[in-house]
Nucleic acid binder design. Structure first.
Lengths: 240, 240
DNA sequence: AAGTGGTCTAGACCACGGC
DNA sequence: CCGTGGTCTAGACCACTTC
């Protein structure tokens, strides 16, 4: 095998990264042609199939569009359908600064239903973090996260107002978040939720309950979120 | 190139089909091992990379799971996350009989916003179909569909109370539905919607606006749906 | 040790797009 | 026409799981 890999990283991932970097650095804009398969293969000293593999994954992720007979092009600014992203990442991808207020961060017990969602025994200790998300100095979401305290009790001391929960988990705890299953429905604002979101009671809210799993399919976070309806909608892509 | 293709169909698609057939015919149940890459390659007289390609696609579709060092296995009966299904199909998959009442089916004009969603010129004629979905003899959803009248004006005469719109489009019109983009938010029941759904005004409703595209990426249907919240929630899977 | 999936090579021919 | 992506070959080594 040619020494196309610097360390243990597969060559096709290095190629993806190099293309992604060019897009991120605005050297390539939507619609611009990406180096062709043959070109990438040559540049990286790699076989054609390997360069193809890299582009195939970028295409599947929607980063790039391939037009047979014509070339490979940077995909138009896509809405990130069905993409698991933290609030920080979502805001960042729109060039906005996230603002978060932590309402509560402590360890709770005897929440059997939540423990069950996390696959924990009934009396499992749980980290509970309640945050209000702001945009334009106005609250628009209330998100309550629950995590197993056995692994993540240290989170209660992390300054989550300015640190991303996703980033902390991935960087400091070595957790690789992989996917989430969400249940979406509609409710109306009441009591504490109405108060924290600063909306009249009776206003419609989108409620999203999600379980986020790590790459080994273990539940890591259970999140219940309430979103002001006129400020937030959810985009989903379904395929047949 | 070896004559691995009978007609013009690529070999990797034929391999996919053969695996799918075995699963469909219950010869392979969830958890059962699928023939290994090398075995499939031999069976189909094809190179390893080609067999791999076939399995890679089946994996991406969630049909199959690959465990390095171990094998490839039929994926467990997956909940159809992010799957584009008609109401009829959804009910059918739960063993329930669909019940639908057609409120309105006619051709409208001068609906510029809707025409825009369908990619039509402003004054395009549009088929509008309004239906109430029932379950347990109780209305739970109001769905309004819009389609370009240029192609689908015949739909106003189809008995859509007992015929699936998806099935009609796919069978009678030769349209291949491919994917949909949905925007989900929360509203409250008001006026005509509250009346048709038989709920008090002010009750929370889930609103889903979706554009359904055919396989050539042309918008075919625009649907606005209102769903009783306590009877309906939406499941979404996101991946990182 | 044998078998599996994951990565990779160095070529090949095809259909199609744009000039 | 040449360059592009799409398909394909006949091998190879690796890390891993299973026995």
């Amino acid at each position: 095998m040619a020494e196309s890999r610097r360390n243990g990283t597969p060559a096709y991932i290095l190629i993806q990264q190099s293309v992604r970097r060019q897009i991120q650095a605005d050297q390539l804009k939507p619609g611009d042609p990406v180096s062709s398969e043959r070109e990438l293969a040559r540049q990286h000293g790699v076989s054609l199939m390997t360069a193809r593999h890299a582009l195939a994954i970028l295409e599947r992720e929607g980063v790039v569009e391939r037009r047979p007979g014509s070339g490979t092009f940077v995909a138009p600014p896509r809405i990130h359908f069905n993409k698991l992203m933290s609030y920080t990442e979502q805001m960042g991808s729109r060039g906005l600064a996230p603002r978060t207020k932590v309402i509560l961060a402590r360890i709770i017990e005897d929440e059997h239903e939540i423990a069950a969602r996390l696959g924990l025994p009934g009396e499992g200790r749980i980290v509970k973090i309640e945050r209000v998300r702001h945009s334009a100095n106005e609250p628009f979401a209330l998100e309550t996260c629950y995590l197993p305290a056995s692994e993540f009790s240290g989170l209660v001391d992390v300054p989550l107002a300015r640190t991303s929960l996703f980033a902390t988990l991935e960087n400091d705890y070595g957790v690789e978040l992989a996917y989430s299953d969400e249940e979406v429905d509609a409710t109306v604002a009441e009591g504490r939720v109405a108060q924290l979101l600063d909306v009249p009671r009776g206003d419609p809210l989108l409620r999203i309950r999600q379980v986020i799993y790590s790459s080994n399919s273990k539940p890591v976070i259970y999140v219940v979120g309430f979103y002001k309806s006129e400020r937030h909608s959810l985009f989903v892509r379904r395929t047949r």
